[in-house]
Structures are given as C-alpha cells and as structure tokens.
C-alpha cells in the first residue's frame, strides 16, 4: 500500500527557503523602494516620540504661514506651527490607526474565514452572508454612522476601519483556506484522526500566512488613506492630535495665500501609501513568482 504523506509541506511563504527569499527580496527593486519609504515613515514616527524640530501643537501667531526656511524646513501653517514637526507627529497617528484597524480586522476576519472554511455548510453560509452585510457599508458609511451616534473621534475611525477590514480578511482567508482543505496533506491529516481545530492551526493557517501578510500590507495602506480622508472630513482624529488628513483640511482655507502648506501632508500620505503598496506587490511576487511573470 502506498504510504500517504501526512506531514504538511513547508509553509508556502518562501520558495527557496528564508535565505532564498531574502536574496530575491534584495533584488526586487519595487519591494526595496517600498521598504525604504515605509521605513522612513516609521522612523519619522519613532523619532517624533522623543524629538521634533519644534512642538507640533505650539501656536506662534507671529510665525504664521512662513515659507520654508532653515528654522522651519517645510514652513509654518496658519497658526505658526512647524509643518515638519506636525508631519512627523502625524505619522504616529497614521501608523497607530492603521495598525490597530488592521489587527482588529485581521484577528476577527482570519478567525471567521478559517471557521467558514473548516465547517463549510450553513456555518459558511451564515458567515458569508454576514460578510455581504459588512460589505454593504464602506468605511465612510460606517464612520458616518458611528460619528452620528457617538460623535467624531479617532476611536470611531479605528472602529470603522477595523469593522470594514473584517469582511476583507474573512473572504480572502476563506478562499485560501478552502483550497488548503482540499490538499492531500490535509486529507491525510484528517484520515489520521486530527480534528478541525488541530488541522486549521497545524496545517491550514501556516500555509496561508503569506496571503494574510500580503492582505495586511494592502489593508494598512488603505487604512492610512481612509484615516486621512476621515480626518479631512472631520470625523476622524480631532484637535490637538496631529493628523495628515486634518492638516490638509485646515490648509484648504489658505490655498490662495499659501498653497505650499497643502502640499507637504499630501506628499507624506502619498509616499507612505506608495511604500506599503510596493511592499504588498513585492511580497506577492516574492511569495508566488508566477504572478510576477504574469504581470
């Protein structure tokens, strides 16, 4: 009788092993550019915890709307606040909101997706219908509902993003997990008497972790964009917490006087999102080189 392989293959995160992955990553130009951009954003946020050129919240009316200079590299806003310092501190808000929102969505969404794939039948039906319901509410509608009921604030923005992400992760993980459940090593594990929970955490999850990581990177980028949009609309971060979106909203009243102040926060958002998108695309190529050849 042919012997059935009951051991799961190595998780499909890194063809060629970790060193091969690193080697290919270092040669992937877009991925490396993404790492540098994202690394810069994280560095800005970390440095701003202990040092900024000026206080990001200090109002100095005598210094209002100053052009870029040696003392204020990016100039000052309508209240005389240093724009570079505000952008550095704003990076903290973007990262914190993005991280918490993605974690919330990932934990709930991955659990639901794995559960749906493991149980199938009516459990899967119920989870997918709930996911349909979740998808009926894009981030901005969830944020509007939460703001209308409980008032504006960063917590509502995080919740809106987190809730939206649940169905995104659930759908992605369910699809990937169902494909895993049909693989021979999972069938063999089941034949060997392993339960759903053991197979899910021992065989399925480790093999779809790359899907989750790629989705988390993309969701992080979307979260940064969405947080900025919500703060721009006044339903996200509130004063005096620094936020790139609110900086843009406030600068819009002064674009006839000092258009440059609307440029910096926008650039910060673009570079951060671009960095994360490039990392996401790069990871997808590195994990599945067939995709890179198709693109």
């Amino acid at each position: 009788m042919a012997q059935i392989e009951t051991t799961a293959p190595a998780p499909a995160t890194a063809p060629g092993g970790p060193s091969g992955f690193m080697h290919r990553a270092l040669r992937h130009r877009a991925f490396m550019i993404g790492l540098v951009l994202t690394g810069t954003m994280i560095l800005f946020a970390l440095v701003s915890l202990v040092w900024t050129p000026h206080s990001p919240t200090e109002i100095v009316i005598s210094q209002r709307l100053k052009s870029p200079s040696l003392s204020h590299w990016f100039g000052t806003d309508q209240f005389g606040r240093d724009i570079l310092s505000m952008i550095m501190a704003g990076a903290q808000t973007s990262i914190v909101v993005g991280l918490i929102a993605v974690c919330l969505g990932a934990v709930a969404g991955v659990s639901l997706g794995l559960w749906a794939a493991a149980r199938r039948g009516w459990t899967e039906d119920v989870i997918m219908r709930l996911s349909d319901l979740n998808m009926a509410f894009p981030v901005i509608l969830i944020a509007i509902l939460l703001t209308a009921g409980w008032g504006p604030g960063i917590t509502n923005a995080i919740l809106a993003l987190g809730i939206f992400n649940i169905s995104v992760f659930a759908r992605q993980v369910r699809g990937a997990a169902i494909a895993m459940w049909e693989r021979e090593f999972v069938l063999a594990a089941r034949a060997a008497g392993k339960g759903d929970l053991s197979i899910t955490f021992g065989h399925v999850l480790p093999n779809i972790i790359s899907v989750i990581v790629v989705q988390a990177t993309i969701s992080f980028a979307i979260a940064i964009l969405a947080e900025a949009a919500l703060s721009y609309l006044g339903v996200g971060s509130q004063p005096p917490d620094p936020s790139w979106g609110r900086m843009l909203s406030e600068s819009q009243s002064y674009i006839f006087l000092a258009p440059i102040i609307a440029v910096w926060p926008g650039l910060a958002i673009v570079l951060s999102v671009l960095g994360l998108n490039l990392i996401g695309d790069g990871l997808r190529d590195l994990v599945d080189p067939r995709l890179a050849r198709q693109r």
Binding site: A221, L225, A228, A229, Y232, G245, L248, S251, Q252, I255, A262, P265, G266, I269, V270, L271, V273, L274, N277
Partner: peptide
C-alpha cells in the same frame, strides 16, 4: 497612492 481629496486640492 494619491488621496483623491489631496488630488482635488
């Protein structure tokens, strides 16, 4: 990567 509201501005 460009936020639409910034592009509008």
């Amino acid at each position: 990567a460009i936020p639409d509201f910034w592009f509008g501005i």
